[in-house]
């Protein structure tokens, strides 16, 4: 139970950090920081709240596969738009 509370506290801290960072003049780095923090929050939720830390390889693979395909889709679409002249 204490572990869950610590994870929740970290999530709230990350929310504060991402909100603060949105007001800083970080230029091009801004979306990277915002989505980086979102990914960190997602990692905490997956690992502790969704119990991935206790699951075996099969369930981790099933979850990871979904995330991997989304990463492929986002990367390929970005590769298209970023390389158009």
């Amino acid at each position: 139970m204490l572990r869950l509370l610590l994870v929740w506290f970290s999530l709230m801290l990350l929310l504060g950090v991402t909100l603060g960072a949105a007001f800083l003049p970080l230029g091009e780095a801004k979306p990277w920081i915002a989505y980086g923090i979102a990914a960190a929050k997602a990692g905490l939720i997956l690992w502790f709240f969704m119990d991935m830390r206790k699951e075996g390889g099969l369930l981790r693979l099933a979850t990871g596969a979904a995330l991997l395909w989304i990463v492929f889709m986002i990367t390929l679409i970005a590769a298209d738009y970023l390389t158009r002249s």
């Binding site: 869950l4 509370l5 994870v7 929740w8 709230m12 929310l15 929050k41 939720i45 502790f48 709240f49």
Partner: peptide
């Protein structure tokens, strides 16, 4: 985020 804590 808090409701997720409660579900866990």
């Amino acid at each position: 985020l808090t409701s997720s804590l409660l579900a866990a």
